[in-house]
């Protein structure tokens, strides 16, 4: 409940934040603080320096441009969940954000902090992966973009370098006859996802599946993309039986996480159930 001492710096701009990161070895960036501060209270994290990026205005907000939606890293979950741009053009992200933590947490926790922390049980990573999102990063040698599929490397580990800042998440605007769904089986204590399923389904005019994606939080150390399931759905008429069959035949997760709350095999079974439910809801919403 009592963090260790640290030096505190407040960055007024992205450039200043990058400079501060270079100046202070092992410094940690502080955005909403909802991943870092709990760890500091238990002294599991004791960074020598904190760089507060929470006031950098250019990192906040949702913009829609030319079929692409960009969410500033400092946009809080509540704003992602309430964004009309997202609700109209990418409802999956808004739905996933509305599942994060609780209303108080959503008022302070940021999408960038969430993604950078890469908790496998968090709600956002699978949604961003399912949308084929891109992560925008900036460092001393300039900015770069990483596909969500490449960004999540391992448990709590990402492609974000120590001298870099995550500036935005970019996702394509939904087009055509598309529906999506984020469903989770929450842990009764923490509220985190024991299994979270993010599904996107696009239908042809004749009702057959034109494309789909399905990703999971909570089941594996990084968000799992069940592409074999969705590949099998393309071209199919999406009745319940077809979805059930595609999931049962093609969902294969070899490296599930397991702990005292939920074993690996149980998580896989949850993934099957939630895959079916999420795909069907996404289909219904298309």
């Amino acid at each position: 409940m009592y963090p260790a001492k640290f030096d505190y710096y407040r960055a007024a701009s992205v450039q200043e934040a990058i400079q501060l990161l270079q100046d202070h070895e092992d410094a940690k960036l502080l955005a909403g603080g909802h991943s870092l501060i709990p760890a500091m209270k238990l002294r599991l994290a004791q960074p020598p320096a904190i760089i507060d990026i929470g006031r950098i205005a250019e990192l906040k907000g949702v913009s829609h441009d030319n079929g692409s939606i960009k969410i500033g890293a400092l946009t809080v979950h509540a704003d992602v969940a309430a964004s009309n741009v997202l609700k109209s053009n990418c409802p999956l992200l808004a739905e996933a954000a509305s599942n994060v933590g609780d209303r108080q947490v959503r008022h302070k926790g940021t999408i960038g902090g969430n993604i950078a922390h890469a908790d496998p049980a968090s709600d956002m990573p699978a949604a961003i992966l399912a949308l084929g999102g891109t992560i925008h990063l900036i460092g001393p040698s300039g900015s770069r973009q990483v596909a969500a599929a490449d960004f999540f490397i391992d448990l709590l580990a990402t492609d974000l370098h120590e001298d870099e800042l995550l500036t935005a998440i970019e996702v394509p605007a939904q087009s055509g006859k598309t529906g999506s769904c984020y469903l989770k089986f929450e842990h009764p204590a923490s509220g985190y996802a024991v299994c979270g399923a993010a599904a996107v389904v696009t239908l042809n005019d004749d009702g057959a599946c034109a494309g789909a994606s399905l990703c999971f939080n909570g089941v594996t150390a990084t968000p799992h993309n069940a592409s074999a399931v969705t590949d099998a759905l393309v071209g199919q008429a999406l009745d319940d039986a077809a979805i059930d069959k595609a999931v049962d035949a093609n969902l294969s997760i070899s490296d599930p996480m397991g702990d005292m709350h939920a074993s690996g095999p149980y998580r896989i079974e949850l993934a099957k159930t939630f895959a079916k439910r999420a795909l069907k809801l996404a289909r219904d919403r298309a």
Binding site: H187, P188, A189, S190
Partner: peptide, 16 residues
Amino acid sequence: LVSGSLMDYALPKAHF
């Protein structure tokens, strides 16, 4: 004690 915090020990919440 592995159920050593409210993140692990499931006190009921209103929506249960």
